[in-house]
Every structure is written in C-alpha cells, then in structure tokens.
C-alpha cells in the first residue's frame, strides 16, 4: 500500500473541507439571502462572496482553520488499520504547510503553539468499526468561536422535553452573534455528559435540511429552528430573520436520574468533506 499517496489523499480531503463548503450549506445560505434585508442581507452577501472567492482561489474560507477533527469508519477487513492514525496525523502536519492552515494547537499549560496543528490528543479522531474493507474519513475542522458557545446541561428529568427545548433556545439566544450566525446547532439528548456532547457534535455531519427519521424528533427540530430564528438575533448578531440554518437532534437512552443535553454549535462555515480509502490503498475525495 502506498502510504505517501494515502497521505496526499487526506491532505486533499482537508483542503476540500477548508476551501469548499458543501452544497447543502450554500443552498441554505442562498435561501437566507432571499429573505433577509438591510444589514442582515449585507452579511449573507459577504458570506456568499467569501465562499465563492475561497473556492476559486483555493484559500481557506476562514482564517480559523479549526481544530482538525475526523470521524473515521473503518471496515474491519481493511488491511492496514494500525497505520491510519499515524497517516492522519502526518497528513495534518503536511496540510498545515501545503494548504496552508493556521497553527491552532496550543499547550494549555505553557501556552506554546505546537505550530503543526498536532499535539496531545489532537487531531481529534473518532473511530467507528463497520463491515467491509473500505475506510471512510470525514473531516470536520472545527472553529474556536463557535466551539466556545458549546453547552452541557445536566437537566432534571422532571423538566421533560419542554425543558430541553427551552434550554437550547435560551442558550442560543445568550450566544448572540458570538458563534458567527447563521449557525447549525447540534443537540445530543440523553446518554451521559460525554455522550450527549458527542452526539451533538456528530449530528453536525448531517446535511443542512436533513430531518431526523423519527417524526416526533423531526418536529422538535423544526420547532427549535423557528423559535431560535424568531429571536431576531440574525446574521452575525446584527439583527435579522436567520439565526440558525438548521438544528439537528440525536438521542441516546438516559439514566433515570439524568437528562443530559449537549449543544454543539457550528458557524455558517459548516466545513465537511468525506473520502474513501479502498482495500488496495486507492482513494477518492467525494
């Protein structure tokens, strides 16, 4: 297997994520442009111009190129599973120079920047094992401004789903313009604290406009979109109709005594890209 070539593929995956926004997000932003007016419209217009320019010039759309985050689905029959973690880490170092990316990994104790976007436990990789011999890697570079608006609520089960909804709406109103709205909000409900946060983050991988397959949950997603947008916070917190492009909910069963709610916030730059690596090492960025 040609490891250098796979590394090149992962760099290409990262470049695509940093420079080209998925179509579902662009479509949602264009819809927002149609309904907004005044200052709000100028913000969406700048965003759309920026997306276009980034794609044409091959430059990262945002200077905050994020913490490099990957979700990997590994086919259990893929031959070199043990090499994947190292290849991703090496690709991050290479991408930092080649694309380039802003050096974004700082030691929390010394304040020293590691300068290559790697460090302790970073890049952050989530591994899932699946049938077959293909490896699927999704890159979700995650910016700091939106990440700072993440929230974990360990609610009292007695507040019920109404309490969960109120928590999400209140927190998104408090966040105001900070996470670069219009945002995509991922909500993980249930599990324990860590699982709720993880489900929230993972739900950001769903395309904008995709509704949960459970109709009750889908209706709650729609209700939350409406309630947050009715706040009037608007693009960049400068007022307007579009504060969120979407709300995605995922759930896990909970402990009888706990009702964890994890909120993961993603800025309008919902950067995602996916690649597949085949059994023989050949790859495609989708």
């Amino acid at each position: 297997m040609d490891y250098e070539d796979i590394k090149k593929g992962i760099v290409q995956l990262m470049k695509k994520a940093e420079t080209e926004l998925p179509n579902d997000v662009i479509t949602a932003l264009k819809k927002a442009y149609e309904i907004e007016e005044g200052v709000a419209k100028t913000q969406i217009e700048a965003i759309l111009k920026n997306i276009d320019l980034a794609k044409k010039s091959g430059r990262p759309m945002c200077q905050d190129t994020g913490i490099q985050t990957f979700f990997v689905e590994v086919g259990v029959n893929f031959p070199d599973i043990d090499k994947l973690g190292g290849l991703i880490k090496d690709a991050v170092k290479k991408a930092t120079k080649d694309i380039p990316l802003r050096p974004n990994t700082v030691d929390p104790f010394t304040g020293e920047n590691h300068k290559d976007n790697t460090g302790d436990n970073i890049p952050y990789i989530t591994w899932d094992f699946v049938e077959g011999s293909n490896v699927w890697i999704t890159a979700l570079p995650k910016g700091g401004g939106s990440e700072n608006m993440s929230k974990l609520g360990m609610l009292k089960p007695g507040v019920g789903i109404e309490g969960v909804k109120d928590f999400v709406v209140t927190e998104m109103i408090k966040a105001g313009g900070n996470p670069c709205p219009p945002t995509i909000v991922g909500v993980g409900i249930g599990g324990g604290a860590d699982l709720a946060m993880k489900l929230g983050k993972k739900s950001l991988l769903r395309p904008v406009g995709d509704r949960h397959k459970d109709k009750t949950i889908a209706a709650i997603e729609e209700e939350l979109i409406k309630r947050i947008n009715d706040s009037g916070i608007g693009p960049m917190g400068l007022g307007g109709k579009t504060t969120v492009l979407d709300v995605h909910i995922e759930k896990a069963h909970r402990h009888p005594a706990s009702l964890p709610v994890g909120i993961a916030v993603q800025c309008w730059a919902n950067r995602r890209a996916k690649m597949v690596i085949h059994f023989d090492g050949s790859w495609e960025v989708k």
Binding site: R59, P60, Q63, D64, R102, P103, C180
Partner: peptide, 28 residues
C-alpha cells in the same frame, strides 16, 4: 466585519509592512 469572511478580508489587504512579537505569541 462579517465573521468567517477570511478570504474576502485577505483580498483587501494590499501589504503587510510589519509584524511584532511573532516568536513570543505565534501566528494567530
């Protein structure tokens, strides 16, 4: 200024005359 509009902003910068404390503080 529109958050995230990094490429657009970069386009309006004509020159970078200087940088201070790059070694101590790092790029960002």
């Amino acid at each position: 200024y529109t958050g995230g509009a990094g490429a657009l902003a970069a386009d309006k910068v004509e020159e970078v005359p200087s940088v201070y404390w790059l070694d101590e503080l790092g790029m960002p």
